[in-house]
Simulated scan of single mutants.
Amino acid sequence: MKGNEKSKVILADRDGFYLQRLKRCLERKGDMTVMGMTDSGPAVLEMAKQGKPDVILMDILLGERDGFWVLENLKKEGISCICILISAIDSDKLVRQAIILGADYYMAKPIQGDLLMERIHQLLRQESGEKAQGAKKEKEPEIAENPFRNLEGEISVMLSRMGISASIRGYHFIRKAVLMAVEDQDVLVGITKGLYPDIAKMYKTSASKVERAIRHAIESAWKKNGPQVYFEAAGYLPAEKPTNGQFIAALSEFFRIQGEERPKKIG
């Protein structure tokens, strides 16, 4: 996007009243414009073909076809935009399927307006940064699809399912730690002297505050849905809540294996 150009958004949900609420929420700050609203999957696809949106925000369950069908056909048509799926169904299988099909983020209803705006702006900034970086490099033929694409979104979904709120600093520290550990397992060796200080520099805080915030986030998760989701990822449930290192190691290993197991597309 250029200058003060508004981000174009398509909304899709079977609830017309809910669509109007979403529209008011997104257009409140004046940097987004809703270019279309519908309850139909094929209509979403047609609007995307004609209007080239920046963001598509849709429920999985639509009146005609569903959100998964839309994701599959966006990919077939070569339409690139940020896709956020929302649903009242909080199912790990649905989340994984959405991410595999190309969704950039998944949110469970009811959605907090401020959190939704924050996520959209984060995804737009990330996409804008990737495009700017790509423009500086000479285009090379794509050899293989990055198996860790959308990793940040997948980690966010898992932390949210555990009950770790994005409003606390520990959420962001854990997500960054897992991302770093997936890319380089060696960061888990001596996290007190390496990982914590590195994250602290990124967020302009201290290593001790990073450690405490992560510990607090894990304690919070363990009182909610954390044990169940941790078991799904790690394959076992410890007698006591895991330490920071154990928690980060388990999640990073889960996402690393997931990334390696995904089929790679040769271009």
Rank of each mutant, 00 (worst) to 15 (best):
K2D: 10
K2S: 15
N4L: 10
E5A: 10
K6R: 12
K8P: 00
K8V: 04
I10T: 07
L11T: 01
A12R: 07
D13A: 06
D15R: 08
Y18A: 10
Y18Q: 07
L19K: 01
K23G: 07
E27A: 08
R28W: 08
G30F: 00
M32V: 02
V34Y: 09
M35I: 15
M37N: 09
D39F: 09
A43Y: 08
L45I: 15
E46Y: 08
D54S: 13
D54H: 15
L57V: 09
M58W: 03
L62I: 07
F68M: 09
N73I: 05
K75W: 10
S80F: 09
S80T: 06
I82Q: 04
I84E: 06
I86F: 13
I86S: 14
K93S: 13
V95E: 10
R96H: 11
I99N: 01
I100P: 00
G102R: 03
A103Y: 08
D104R: 07
Y106F: 15
P110E: 12
Q112F: 09
H121G: 01
Q122P: 00
R125Q: 13
R125L: 05
E127K: 11
A132Q: 11
G134N: 13
G134Y: 02
K136H: 10
E138P: 00
E138V: 15
E138S: 09
P141T: 14
A144T: 04
E145P: 00
F148Q: 06
N150R: 15
E154C: 04
V157A: 15
L159G: 09
I164D: 04
I168Y: 02
G170H: 04
R175M: 14
K176C: 11
M180I: 00
V182R: 12
V182E: 10
D186E: 12
G190Q: 03
I191L: 09
I191F: 04
K193W: 02
M202W: 03
K204S: 13
T205A: 09
R212Q: 11
I214W: 02
S220Y: 08
K223C: 06
Y230E: 03
F231A: 11
E232D: 12
A234E: 12
G235V: 02
G235S: 06
Y236K: 13
Q246T: 03
A249P: 00
A250T: 11
S252D: 08
S252W: 03
F254T: 06
F255G: 09
I257P: 00
K264A: 15
K265E: 14
G267C: 04
